[in-house]
Design a protein around this nucleic acid. Structure first.
Lengths: 222, 222
DNA sequence: CGAGTTCGCGAACAGTGTTCTCAAACTCTA
DNA sequence: TAGAGTTTGAGAACACTGTTCGCGAACTCG
């Protein structure tokens, strides 16, 4: 029972007998999130998390199968930050609300978009969100597969928006440097024109972004 | 000149004087892609790539700033696999063609979706694709920012589709295991219903997937 | 009280990306 | 042709990673 292939959410946290545990899975997850929020995605190492808790790396393995489990726990823990108000009956509006929350949660945790995009986490909290989306789409045409796909794409879109706003540090700067170089060469008129637009004073308002996000989400439902 | 912040695409590959190089940046990139195709994303280590070339890890640093540069080169190299036919005048059709190619390229290189989603690579080959998209959208309303966003989302959507089809190995199986467990508990009717639909015999055809992808891409243009 | 179980965690291991270093290999100049 | 100058190749080493082993300590149960 509870072999290696069992997902973390089903593995029992503690035994009832023997020496009592000094920590909780939730505590460790919280420490990991704190480390990631402070030091970026690369800082999430077993050593750093253990240091945050004032213990050794080996201790963590009593609570968690390994680093991968811990990352899953972190992602699912952030899903608890959603406020899932009862559906209004307006499909688009309800889904946009979820997408906006996804975006702002990801902005709060800059390491999150990368993880959400890469690994298909479906823990208890994430499942609550999925359930909420299914509820909002209850009387919407389309089978379950399609609705699950809508959920995945909603996350992907929100993550893309968040990554854009986070600007991804010097990585994006390098890409911009190359784009500028090509634009300056002037051999590709379309690229040059694009570059000029991008470097022009940015009058992008929050409203425009919100509108764009809403338009995309609403288009998911067609 | 050519300090550390210069993007790889602008750093000169070789010097004209001194001992001649035995390898090429392109050769190393190809070796890295071969390793990744064969052994999955985790196999892309400097050691493995060096072994593939019959040399030591340290040698690679003469051609490439580090692992990150190499990953960028890999991603951009795959962008050379696009066939960029001249635009037909039908915006939707042209963009769908690009998205379909993105998907099939990613299926050929299972390690690609993860990288594409995570890092905003804009090398020469990727820039060709962007230029092609801009050409296809030349007479489409919307500013450059919007069109760049369309390009990013097109990639994200294609990557999401590819990841879905690749099924992501035992990671997805674990998520499914948990979903099945919750469904069996029967406390959440919507989740149980969804699970029943997912485990029912899968009559999903390629046509349905293509239709769905086309619908999403076309909705990007509204 | 003693048996049985579990926890904490220092120490060690295999693997990683990266840098240092210096001999070898080449081009250019005299 | 001899020598100076420059660049490459790559072994060895470093700092770091995730992970496992083992054992003493801490607790529950009979």
């Amino acid at each position: 029972m509870t072999d290696d292939t069992t997902p973390i959410w089903l593995r029992p946290e503690r035994a009832a007998v023997g020496r009592p545990a000094e920590r909780t899975r939730a505590e460790i997850t919280a420490a990991a999130i704190a480390v990631a929020d402070r030091g970026g995605p690369d800082a999430v190492s077993m050593r750093n998390i253990a240091d945050e808790l004032g213990t050794g790396p080996a201790s963590l393995y009593r609570y968690v199968g390994g680093r991968d489990d811990l990352l899953d726990l972190m992602v699912d823990a952030t899903a608890a930050e959603y406020r899932l108000d009862p559906p209004t009956g307006d499909h688009v509006r309800d889904l946009v609300a979820v997408a906006e929350q996804a975006r702002s949660i990801m902005l709060r945790h800059p390491w999150l978009p990368e993880l959400v995009l890469t690994r298909p986490v479906l823990g208890p909290c994430t499942l609550d969100v999925l359930d909420h989306v299914l509820e909002a789409l209850a009387d919407h045409p389309g089978d379950g597969r399609t609705k699950l796909e809508i959920f995945a794409l909603l996350n992907a879109i929100a993550a893309t928006f968040a990554l854009n706003e986070l600007a991804a540090g010097n990585r994006a700067e390098r890409a911009a440097a190359y784009l500028g170089h090509i634009a300056a060469a002037g051999e590709r008129p379309r690229i040059t024109a694009l570059w000029d637009e991008l470097t022009a004073p940015n009058d992008d308002s929050d409203d425009r972004r919100a509108e764009r996000l809403a338009a995309l989400v609403s288009s998911l439902l067609q």
